[in-house]
Design a protein around this nucleic acid. Structure first.
Length: 729
DNA sequence: TTAGTATTAATTTTT
DNA sequence: TTAATACTAA
């Protein structure tokens, strides 16, 4: 009678897994095993209830979560579950729309536009099509207005603006959608909206999917938006077997349309909702939980939870005030090194979290100077890098000729004599003849005199069109990796990006990385699958467990992850809470949840750091400790000194009232230590090999040297970390 | 007319 | 620090 599916679960978890059919809501605190419950529920439905896998649709927040969940379910059941659909909302909808393209004003070859593509298109609509002033009608603002409308499934035709500004939004929105269709493209929001609209307008299509979907399970329910909620309702509509797992306190994507009030909606829409509360935490120490609880308790409008664990006590939270971001980063790296050396902590079990990607730089530099490896999530995400976007644009244009945004991107990249003037004439002519850019190119191929252009421009255009045609001819005959190599070769892309600098070499390495990814792609997979995957992967998806090194990531990216040791850096007002959130209580509540999410990632140790002053956009700003830090009971916290030793604070936080910066005295300024190295000396480094010292200067109590390595190039190193050996000099 | 260079403006979080 | 834009040489 007992099944391994229920092994090791507590009563609350078990009651969730075995809940009767119908709508279920699992409200779960951090570390309470909610993803585990979802996994077991799927296995339980298949094994104990005899539900065929193809009748189950499970939705996760990231592709990585989906991958891991599939592995676990298959592990539990000991079989391949090919029929089980498991993925993000976006990926699920993208596949569905491709299958149902006949019902849409799109072809199967449609492409997915990311934020940068959207911005390029909307700018062209505002400035090019509607002749509006870019300063008055800001692309970003209009885009987020459009996104909000799409979230509510309001089409341009249905939109009834109340004020003049929205009148403009309506016009831009209408034209933007037109242009998307002309390009045979959709944006992220369209994926969801078009699917939900399709279900509404074509009941027989919905009925077909409902027959194939008896059970819908959703992870991270607090971060679903309105369309996603409607999709979930539509798909589970036949039998109302909707299983939602989430935590209001971890809702951190409001700015993207996520609405934790979906939890309330669920309660209203399903009076028979079966609710399970999971409060027992299996991750953090009680001390960390108490601190996190104290922070989140200040938020109103939530289901109060009482987080408990068996792991009583635990080491105090360590708070460190650095002089600036450099010292802060050094403290983090020093502490990790010490923990690894003395406390038997794995480097891979440490994470450094920050509010904005820009903050990673200082931390990265500290790691580099110490000569220690690290893993970076996000920052300039792989698929948004210039060279990668270029390459993807080539593939998109080969795949979908109508993709004007991508065509415009690559038509003169690398430069091939098709400059702004030529493009202007071409685009204007296309507009006059009601053609797309692709149409104009085709017309030109048929009759070179059709468009008033000089011979040089015509030559350049013909050359480009010829290459494009050649690629389309071989598209289905060559493996993807070879196709990309052919394109790279014919446009001499390497000469273009690899300019001999270090960054140039990096860029080319990125290109080769993409070639490798593509080469591993199954030979029979259509280009559309590859492009779709590339559009919908996130950076965390590629986070591998291979390298045993600390992870650097934003608080948003940290959702769903956990580490033995967590450092939260930049805990200053204006950073967390972010300056742009200060005037909106709803946004402030979200910033607080972000703090809570970060704290509850830690299993054993939590370090909170802030800087007295910080370099922002090239200028130094004096900062104040984050108000959220002050909400932690002071007796749970030890303060650290730069040398790593810690002391207990007075019984109150003693928050300064003003912002008068005290006199700045840097340690080490008065008595610089004797320098070991000087310019011209030859040195040996364990990793970088031999090099010559270019410069040496005191840095705090330490010494910083610039060394030109024969292999690795110019590096800046901290002497006490770098383990440099003097060869001669 | 194009391509390369100098200047200036701008930076939350991401499927 | 990067990205977009204005300017200048070829």
């Amino acid at each position: 009678m007992t099944s391994p599916i229920l092994d090791g679960l507590n009563d609350a978890q078990r009651s969730a897994v075995t809940a009767p059919d119908g709508p279920v809501l699992v409200l779960a605190g951090p570390g309470s095993g909610k993803t585990r419950v979802l996994t077991r529920r799927i296995a339980w439905l298949i094994q104990e209830r005899g539900v065929p896998p193809w009748r189950i649709l499970a939705v996760t927040f990231t592709n990585k979560a989906a991958r891991e969940m599939r592995q676990r379910v298959e592990g539990l059941l000991g079989e391949d579950l090919k029929g089980l659909s498991l993925g993000t909302f976006h990926a699920t909808c993208a596949r569905l729309l491709r299958r149902e393209a006949d019902f849409l004003p799109l072809t199967r070859e449609y492409v997915i536009y990311d934020t940068a593509d959207q911005r390029a298109l909307i700018k062209d609509v505002i400035v090019g099509d509607l002749n509006l002033d870019e300063k008055r009608v800001q692309p970003n603002r209009v885009l987020s207005a459009i996104s909000a409308l799409k979230d509510e499934m309001i089409t341009p035709e249905a939109y009834q603006p109340q004020v003049y500004r929205d009148e403009v939004v309506k016009r831009v929105y209408a034209r933007y959608q037109e242009r998307l269709l002309l390009n045979n493209a959709v944006d992220f929001d369209d994926l969801l909206m078009r699917t939900a609209l399709l279900f509404e307008e074509q009941p027989e299509v919905l009925a077909r999917y409902q027959r194939n979907t008896g059970h819908v399970l959703i992870d991270e329910f607090q971060d679903t938006n309105l369309v996603q909620y409607r999709l979930a309702r539509q798909l589970s509509g036949g039998e109302d077997n909707l299983f939602c797992v989430g935590d209001e306190d971890q809702s951190i994507y409001r700015w993207r349309g996520a609405d934790y009030r979906n939890v309330m909606r669920l309660r209203e829409d399903y009076p028979k909702l079966h609710t399970v509360l999971l409060e027992r935490n299996y991750r953090s120490t009680q001390l960390i939980l108490d601190a996190a609880q104290a922070v989140i308790d200040k938020n109103a409008q939530r289901t109060p939870k009482n987080l408990v664990t068996d792991r009583e006590g635990g080491p105090e939270i360590v708070l460190f005030e650095a002089f600036d971001e450099e010292e802060e980063a050094r403290f983090v790296v020093d502490t990790i090194a010490t923990l690894v050396a003395t406390e038997n902590i794995e480097p891979g079990e440490c994470a450094v979290m920050y509010r904005t990607n820009a903050q990673s730089r200082a931390v990265e530099e500290a790691f580099i100077r110490a000569g220690l490896p690290y893993r970076l999530v996000g920052a300039t995400r792989f698929y948004t890098r210039r060279e990668i976007k270029d390459l993807i644009a080539y593939l998109r244009v080969i795949h979908n000729p109508e993709d004007g945004v991508s065509l415009l991107r690559i038509i003169n990249t690398p430069p091939r004599g098709i400059g702004s003037k030529t493009l202007d004439t071409l685009v204007t002519w296309a507009g006059q003849h009601d053609l797309t850019l692709a149409g104009a190119l085709a017309a030109l191929a048929a009759d070179p005199d059709a468009i008033p252009l000089g011979g040089r421009a015509l030559n350049a255009l013909a050359g480009f069109a010829g290459m494009l045609e050649g690629w389309r001819d071989v598209r289905d005959k060559l493996p993807l990796g070879d196709l990309i190599r052919l394109v790279l070769d014919e446009v001499s892309y390497r000469d273009y990006v690899d300019d001999g600098t270090e960054q140039g070499a990096d860029r080319w390495a990125n290109v080769m990385e993409l070639v490798n990814v593509a080469a591993e792609y199954p030979a029979d997979a259509p280009l559309s699958t590859f492009l779709e995957e590339v559009a919908l992967v996130s950076d965390v998806d590629n986070l591998t467990e291979e390298a045993n090194a600390p992870t650097l990531l934003t608080l948003h990216a940290a959702k769903g992850l956990e580490y033995d040791v967590v450092f939260m850096v930049g805990l200053e007002d204006d950073m967390l809470p972010h300056a742009r959130s200060l005037d909106d209580p709803e946004q402030m509540a979200e910033e607080r949840r972000l703090m809570y999410v970060g704290m509850t990632r830690a299993r054993q140790r939590l370090y909170l750091t802030y800087a007295f002053q910080r370099l922002i956009w090239g200028s130094t700003e004096v900062k104040m400790r984050s108000r959220f830090v002050d909400d932690i009971p002071v007796d749970l916290v030890l303060s650290a000194r730069p040398d790593g030793s810690a002391y207990r604070r007075a019984t109150t936080w003693g928050r300064p009232s003003g912002r008068t910066p005290p006199k700045i005295t840097r340690t080490g300024d008065s008595a610089p230590p004797a320098q070991q190295f000087k310019a011209g000396q030859r040195v040996l480094h364990a990793k970088f090999g031999e090099g010559i010292v270019i410069e040496s200067r005191p840095s705090g109590a330490d010494e910083e040297v610039s060394v030109a390595f024969e292999e690795a190039g110019l590096k800046r190193l901290i002497v006490s970390f770098a383990n440099l050996t003097l060869l001669d000099g």
